[in-house]
C-alpha cells in the first residue's frame, strides 16, 4: 500500500517533467506542423547552460538565465533556419530539426566534453523533506512538482485569458484565417517556438541534477516526448498534461512491480517447458515487467493511433 502511494508520487514527478517538454512541443507541432526532433536537444542545452551558470553564480540565477538563453537560441533558430525551410514543406523541416539535433549534441560535446557533468542540486534543497515508511522524499523533487504545476497554470492562463493566447488558440486550428485577419503569424510562430524551447530549457535545468547531465540525455527523452503529444492529442494543453502523467505513471509502476510473464502464462494454462534453456520461448518465460517498462509507451501510442488517430484529447486529426 505504501509502495503504491510512493510510486504515485515518483510517477507524478516524472510525468510533470515530461509535461514541461511536451507542453512546448505540442504548441509548436500543432501550429507549425513541425515534428521538432531537436526539442529534447534544447532540454539538453538547458541542462548544460544551467550547469555552467550554476558553477559561477549559483543554481537560482541559472534557473532563470539558462532558459532565457535557450529560448533566445530557439527563437533565432526559428527565424533564420526553420522559417527559411518552411516554404519547402514538412519533410525538409523535419530533416532540418534532425540535423539540428545532431549539431546541438556535437556542439555540447565540443564545448563541455562527453563525460558526465557533476551538476548538483542546490544545497538548500539537497535534503530529504520527509520520510514515509522509511522512504525518503527529496525536497528537490517536491520543488520540481511546484515548478511544473506553476508552468501549467501560467500557460493555461495565458492561453485562455489573454489576447495573445486567443490568437495562438485560433492559429492552432485556423492559421490561414488568423493570417488573413491581419495578425503577424510568423511573429507568433517565432514567439511560440522561443517560449516552447525556453520551457524545454527550464526542464533541462531542473532535470539536470536529478536525472544526470550527459550527452545522451536528449536522445533518452527525445522520442518519448513525441509519444506524449501524440497520445494526448495535438494542441491540447490538457491532453499533453494528462498524457504526460499517464506515461510517467505507466513507466514508474512498470518499473516498480516485478510482474513475471511466467505467472501470466501459467494462469493462461501454459506449462513451463522443463528444459527452459533450449526452448524457443525461453525469453518469454523469464520476462518481467520492468524489462519492458520503458517501451510500454510506444505500445500505447501505436494502439491509440490505430484506434483514435486524433489522440485522446485532440480536436483534429494529425
Amino acid at each position: 500500500m505504501e509502495l503504491i502511494a510512493i510510486t504515485l508520487f515518483d510517477g507524478l514527478v516524472m510525468g510533470l517533467l515530461l509535461f514541461m517538454l511536451s507542453s512546448g512541443l505540442t504548441l509548436i507541432f500543432s501550429m507549425m506542423g513541425v515534428l521538432n526532433f531537436a526539442h529534447a536537444s534544447f532540454y539538453m542545452l538547458g541542462a548544460y547552460f544551467g550547469f555552467q551558470i550554476s558553477q559561477s553564480i549559483g543554481f537560482w540565477p541559472a534557473l532563470v538565465i539558462a532558459p532565457i538563453i535557450v529560448g533566445i537560441a530557439g527563437a533565432l533558430v526559428e527565424r533564420y533556419g526553420l522559417r527559411r525551410v518552411h516554404k519547402y514543406g514538412h519533410v525538409p523541416e523535419l530533416i532540418f530539426t534532425f540535423g539540428l539535433a545532431l549539431v546541438i549534441e556535437e556542439f555540447v560535446n565540443f564545448v563541455w566534453g562527453r563525460d558526465q557533468k557533476p551538476f548538483q542540486e542546490p544545497d538548500s534543497l539537497h535534503f530529504a523533506l520527509f520520510h514515509l515508511h522509511g522512504y525518503a522524499f527529496p525536497a528537490y523533487k517536491v520543488f520540481m512538482i511546484f515548478v511544473a504545476v506553476g508552468i501549467f497554470l501560467v500557460l493555461l492562463t495565458i492561453l485562455t485569458r489573454t489576447r495573445i493566447g486567443l490568437v495562438i488558440q485560433a492559429a492552432l486550428s485556423h492559421p490561414e484565417t488568423v493570417q488573413n485577419l491581419g495578425h503577424n503569424v510568423p511573429l507568433v510562430f517565432m514567439g511560440v517556438f522561443g517560449v516552447g524551447t525556453a520551457l524545454a530549457g527550464l526542464a533541462g535545468v531542473i532535470a539536470g541534477p536529478a536525472l544526470g547531465t550527459f550527452p545522451g540525455m536528449a536522445f533518452l527523452l527525445g522520442s518519448i516526448v513525441f509519444v506524449t503529444i501524440v497520445v494526448g492529442g495535438l494542441g491540447s494543453l490538457w491532453g499533453a498534461l494528462i498524457a504526460s502523467l499517464l506515461i510517467g505513471w505507466l513507466q514508474t509502476f512498470a518499473a516498480s512491480y516485478n510482474l513475471r510473464f511466467a505467472d501470466i502464462l501459467t494462469a493462461l494454462g501454459f506449462t513451463r517447458p522443463l528444459r527452459i534453456a533450449d526452448s524457443v520461448f525461453r525469453d518469454l518465460w523469464t520476462l518481467t515487467l520492468p524489462q519492458i517498462g520503458p517501451i510500454l509507451p510506444y505500445f500505447v501510442m501505436v494502439l491509440v493511433l490505430a484506434i483514435r488517430p486524433q489522440g485522446l484529447f485532440g480536436k483534429r486529426e494529425l
Binding site: 513525441f226 509519444v227 525469453d283 519492458i292 510506444y298 501510442m301 493511433l305 494529425l318
Partner: peptide, 24 residues
C-alpha cells in the same frame, strides 16, 4: 502523414527493444 510516421516510430522502437529481449 503523421499518423503513419508516428506508428512507424512506435513499431521501430518496439522491434528494436524486442531485439534485445528476445535472445533466442
Amino acid at each position: 502523414g503523421t499518423v503513419f510516421a508516428m506508428i512507424s516510430l512506435g513499431v521501430g522502437e518496439l522491434v528494436a527493444a524486442s531485439s534485445i529481449i528476445i535472445v533466442s
